[in-house]
Simulated scan of single mutants.
Amino acid sequence: MKGIILLVLGIGLLHTASAVTHSLKYFYTASSEVPNFPEFVVVGMVDGVQMVHYDSNSQRMVPRQDWMNKAAETLPQYWESQTGILKGTQQTYKASIDIVKQRFNQSGGVHTVQLMYGCELGDDGITRGDFQYGYDGADFLSLDKSTLTWTAANQKAVITKLKLDATGAEANFQKNYLENTCIEWLKKYVNYGKDTLERKVRPSVSLLQKTPSSPVTCHATGFYPSGVMVFWQKDGQEQHGDVEHGEILQNDDGTFQKSTHLTVTPEEWKNNKYQCVVQLAGIEDDITKVLIESEIQTNFGKTNRGSNDPNTIGLIIGGVIALLVIIAVVGVVIWKKKNKKGFVPASTSDTDSENSGKGIQKI
């Protein structure tokens, strides 16, 4: 499952609160020969929060947030219609994974076909949309909305590209979905869950260290929304060379966490002013944590320089690893090479089912 990892969130060059952006993303994963795991899984997320789930074992689309039940209040057949669509898509993906395995001359082993698609809506009205396939954690095929053509990432994907480009119907269909239907449903979902999705929760910030020679970790957790910057400063100047940024991960309660690691000797930070700065979208005041000995929580030798639990670091790191494993198995993939381009928002039209007639084809 190497390469089927992580939600990759970009880190901007300027540390300013970003404009409010809402997103609707779907991740489809078909797999072969993965023990004790469904052959087909769908995860739907609004603003980075999982709101629906489907898998080939249960064969039911189910809500992951209480507020998603509001969909059934306005559309009584919502869950039944979505389930029916995904049952059909499941069969399509079962065929697709066999097709691609044949192209790569593979007869067995663990393999995955993935699809990521969705849209974003900024508070300035600018929208974005992406639709792309992956195979075994690598790029395979993606839609170029500007030219209404498909881009093959390797020679094995050219067959699919030529088939889809021949009529242009699929490209037109998906472009219309991304620019219209997806945006419309994103607005509905945000309205359903606005009390949750539009809340602002300040993070708890801690400085952690395994051993005296380990990097010092600035760990921000419990914040919402996910738009956060966590960076280190030395004497008021941002540090880059000795800093490693972790990914933004989701906690069980729907909030988020992020860690940024600073490699520095005790002599260096004791003789200079190092501080961690946390900036959260929607909250004006920065949160700072100055690197001094009494602020560091550790599990070496001393009982707690700042925490009552000497195992704090181990628990946090263990939780992060466990979450990465879950993300890897589910196959939630965003490819790092993704090139997002904005487009002018189009008029929307109502529909009884968000994915009705999505037309996802065998690849």
Rank of each mutant, 00 (worst) to 15 (best):
F173S: 13
A153T: 03
R103H: 13
M116H: 11
L143R: 04
R128C: 08
S107L: 11
T167G: 02
S107C: 08
D165G: 02
G108F: 11
R103I: 08
F140M: 01
F140V: 01
A171C: 03
A153C: 02
A166W: 07
K145C: 12
Y135K: 06
L164D: 03
G122D: 14
V110Q: 14
H111N: 15
G125C: 00
G125K: 03
E120H: 10
L164E: 10
N172R: 12
L141F: 02
L141W: 02
T167N: 07
T160C: 10
G108D: 14
Y117D: 14
A171D: 05
E170S: 10
Q106F: 10
G134A: 15
T112G: 07
G122W: 04
A138M: 12
Q114H: 09
D136E: 06
M116L: 14
D136H: 07
G129T: 02
Y133S: 12
D123P: 07
D136W: 05
G168H: 00
S146E: 14
G109L: 07
Q102P: 01
Q106N: 08
G125S: 04
G108Y: 09
E120Y: 08
V113P: 04
V113N: 08
Q174C: 03
G168V: 03
G118H: 06
V158A: 09
T160E: 13
